[in-house]
Amino acid sequence: MPQTAAIQLSNLRFRWRQGLPEVLNISELEVARGERVFIRGASGSGKSTLLALLAGVNLPTNGEVNILGQAISQLNGSRRDHFRSDHIGFIFQLFNLIPYLSVLENVALPCRFSRSRRLNATRSGNTLHDEARRLLEHLGMADDDLIHRPVTELSVGQQQRVATARALIGAPEIIIADEPTSALDSDMRQLFIRLLFQECERTGSTLLFASHDKQLESLFERHITLEKINRIGQELG
């Protein structure tokens, strides 16, 4: 089976609503499987909008988004939700966790909604919580005391690592991280990204990492500057 690209966009145009100006106009973008891509863009450059399109939460006004060879706009809403939960893990900037669930339950959460990720996660014969624990261990959260703490009492760095474990569980093909490090201090950032890389490599996941932090750029093999590929002026967004 020929490997399709992880992400492939062509002639993508997007506006929020009819009558509003376009926010995105990208003629071409392709990300290969296993690639680690840094997407740089100032806030308001349409970065979050692009990520929402890649995730299939929003549909392009024109053009097509292909994820893992699947044209997203050909799926109906429910299928898109399915597709997303099966193939994409997310890490947000802040407050990624469900406050009323435990650390392990937070990590295992995607497996409640995606059968394929549940199967992936338990393939080795592990229970979901074993797998969650294993991922947390890899991310430096082996401490039992930490794991049993209410998530609201974890530090920001710890929360982001829990969120990362959650994005990785069940080995989705694509990880989308939207400013995941902006709340961390710079030492933590380096460590966090290294752990993230390590895990993506292990699972073979493609990583899209959106940030406006130039210092991190050098750690990535490929950089995309949104202002360069987006034909719409950066004052819009």
Binding site: G77, D81, R84, S85, F92, N96, R112, F113, R117
Partner: peptide, 16 residues
């Protein structure tokens, strides 16, 4: 709404 968004991001569908 934040909680809902997180749930959506991990695969919860609107009907969930």
């Amino acid at each position: 709404r934040r909680e809902m968004a997180i749930l959506r991001s991990v695969g919860a569908r609107p009907r969930h």
